[in-house]
Computed example of a mutant assay.
Amino acid sequence: MSIFSRTRDIFAANITEMLDRSEDPAKMIRMVILEMEETLVEVRASAARCIADGKEMRRALSRLEELQAGWTEKAELALSKDREDLAKAALIERQKAADMGEGLRGEIKTIDDTLRSYEADISKLQGKLREARARQNAIQSRFESAVTRGRARELLNGSRTEDAFSKFEILERRADFAEGRADALGMTGPKSLEEEIAELRASESVDAELEAMKAALKAKGK
């Protein structure tokens, strides 16, 4: 099973539980992305080990091929000297090297297949990471918008707003009362009998003084 398939199964098994447990969707998304990033690092590390193993095996295969060529030369040399026994022994050693080389070729093929699987896994993981990051931004924006709308609706429909407006009404009534007192202080009621008589006496005094001033001015004119 590829690492990507294993990771996908892990996400499928855990994502519902994570959503149920998480009170902060943004935090949950960050956790999912972090796990995907860690898995990507793991896949790349495994791929790096496969590449190193492949290079080492190819170097070993090259040495075995050189060894086979060497045993072939030795077998030919032994035959040229009429040493068939030595030639046969050299060919046996060459066959051993050939068998080891064939085994290495099989292992190299397995490594190459594994590397292709890792490349596919890495490509899929990178695509999923890009998608997750894009969704992270979108979901974060939606979550923040929902929280803002919720607060606005709570403010408009909640008891705190009603309490505030009831206090406004109390303050308005107090303002009305204060204005009424101020208006009442400026109001004048009907005059009493004594006030009216006093005004008449004052008027007579003023009229008498006015007549005296007229008479004085008239006398001066003559």
Rank of each mutant, 00 (worst) to 15 (best):
M18T: 01
E17G: 09
Q136M: 12
A132F: 02
G103F: 03
R135D: 09
D99M: 04
T72A: 10
A47R: 09
F143C: 06
K124S: 10
G127T: 00
I29N: 05
E66H: 11
A132C: 02
E56T: 04
S22K: 03
R116E: 04
E154W: 11
R63T: 08
L67H: 11
A120Y: 01
E35T: 00
A120K: 01
A89I: 10
M18L: 14
G106I: 06
D82T: 02
M100V: 09
A60D: 10
L40A: 04
R149C: 09
S46V: 09
G101A: 14
L125D: 00
E154T: 04
A78Q: 01
R105N: 15
G103P: 06
M57C: 10
R59D: 15
C50P: 13
R21P: 07
A26P: 12
T148M: 11
L155T: 00
E76S: 03
G127A: 09
R63I: 12
R151I: 11
C50F: 15
L77H: 04
E42A: 06
A89W: 13
L67M: 05
R59A: 15
R83K: 05
L19K: 07
E131L: 05
E17F: 01
G70T: 03
N14G: 08
E65K: 03
S22H: 05
A26C: 14
A78W: 04
A69F: 14
A78I: 05
V147C: 03
R153N: 02
L19Q: 07
L129S: 00
G127V: 00
T72L: 15
S80M: 07
A60R: 13
M28Q: 11
L79H: 13
K96T: 12
L115E: 08
S62C: 09
R151L: 06
K81L: 15
A97T: 06
T148D: 13
N14L: 10
D82K: 07
K88I: 05
K74V: 15
I139M: 05
G101H: 07
E56W: 10
N14I: 10
Q140W: 07
R135F: 06
V41L: 01
S117F: 04
I92Y: 12
E154R: 07
L40F: 07
G106P: 04
R130Y: 08
I33A: 02
L61F: 08
E42P: 03
S62T: 12
S123C: 08
A78P: 06
R59L: 15
S145P: 01
R130L: 10
A132Y: 01
K88S: 14
D85W: 06
E17P: 05
R153W: 11
G106C: 11
L91R: 15
L19E: 11
V32M: 03
L129T: 00
R58V: 11
G150T: 02
L34P: 07
K88G: 11
S80Q: 09
E23W: 13
L34R: 03
G127K: 03
E73Q: 07
R142C: 15
S80N: 14
Q136H: 08
E42S: 05
I15Q: 13
D113G: 02
A146H: 12
I92T: 13
L77N: 02
A89R: 08
A120M: 05
Q68P: 09
L129A: 02
L34K: 00
I33F: 02
A26N: 07
L64G: 02
E38S: 11
E131S: 00
R149M: 09
D20M: 11
E42N: 04
Q95P: 14
I15R: 10
V41D: 14
K124M: 06
G54I: 10
L125F: 01
I122W: 08
